[in-house]
Design a protein around this nucleic acid. Sequence first.
DNA 1: ACCCAGGGTCATA
DNA 2: TATGACCATGGG
Length: 219
Amino acid sequence: MARLSIAALYDRLFQVYGPQGWWPAESSFEVMVGALLTQNTAWRNVERAIAALRSARALTPRRIVKAAPQQLGRWIKSSGCFNVKAGRLQHLCQWYLDQGEHAVLAGLPTALLRPALLAVHGVGQETADAILLYAFNRPVFVIDAYTRRLLYRLGIIYGDEDYEALRGLMQQRLARRRNTTQVYNQYHALIVQHAKTVCKVKPRCNVCCLQRRCQQRLD
DNA sequence: ACCCAGGGTCATA
DNA sequence: TATGACCATGGG
């Protein structure tokens, strides 16, 4: 059986799950907050944290920076690792204010914006790229553990490639597409959706198990 | 009682 | 560079 290509996998996922409507948020700033809070955390718990911030009227960069760390921790408690994340959230918001907020940042080229995000303490590659793609609408593919696992099961990668190698691979294979930013947006969301529904319920799902190597669980 | 979730940082070797 | 510990809640 011929190996499924990265481009064909996208079409298959989209065919099965349809458009995903990511990122669920009311503003680009809220996307940034969510991207940070969802680090190693189920989205459900992040929603509660964001709801708590909103009902406390604390869902703004200034309120978050001004808040006492302990208070901030209480608001975002449901997202786990709350002491760590309270600090990270304040670093991110302080940076956001220092840079002049969204309008200024939106004017920066991705080649400058990405390193700037990565320089924020608590923002790693996946979080930075999620912010670039979903808050700033930049054509940057977000690599996560699900992406790596799925590509590995499909025999598309070895599995030991580093983050940048995978991001480069995904972007290269999708370069011919019409609207790459929209494709990256949907693709990442589709992989997450696929991972937390079908693969979990049905070990032999109708997407990744088109391939032999996927007939057995490899992790 | 485990294991994992829409990760990242830090100490150690 | 490459592991491991740590953060810590909520759901399965």
